[in-house]
């Protein structure tokens, strides 16, 4: 069970959270203008790194707010949490 530091509530058990996929994937500004390849990229392709990964979480059984986290997928260490709309922080 991960211990995830919610930016509002502090460290809480993973079971209180919902995972929301990769962060910083904006909806295309003009979807109709995309090629099939670009649309496929938006729809189906996400980062899958072995290492730091920026991702969205929702503290669904707590404050119910969304936030972003950088987590190392090789160790599960949470390297940073930050609020939606903020840029991805530099992590070591």
């Amino acid at each position: 069970m991960l211990l995830i530091p919610c930016p509002w509530c502090g460290p809480r058990d993973e079971a209180e959270f919902g995972y929301g996929g990769q962060a910083h994937v904006p909806y295309p500004q003009d979807p109709a203008a995309l090629s099939d390849r670009e649309w496929a990229r938006y729809l189906f392709f996400r980062d899958n790194p072995k290492g730091p990964h920026a991702e969205r979480w929702c503290h669904s059984a707590g404050c119910r707010r969304w936030f972003n986290a950088v987590r190392n997928t090789a160790t599960n260490e949470v390297l940073a949490v930050y609020r939606v709309g903020e840029p991805r922080p530099v992590t070591g």
Binding site: M1, L2, E14, A15, G18, Y19, N48, K50, H53, E55, R71, T73, A74, T75, N76
Partner: peptide, 13 residues
């Protein structure tokens, strides 16, 4: 487990 990871272990819940 819901999130991507390469840890070859998961959560007990």
């Amino acid at each position: 487990d819901a999130y991507p990871a390469y840890t070859q272990r998961g959560a007990f819940h």
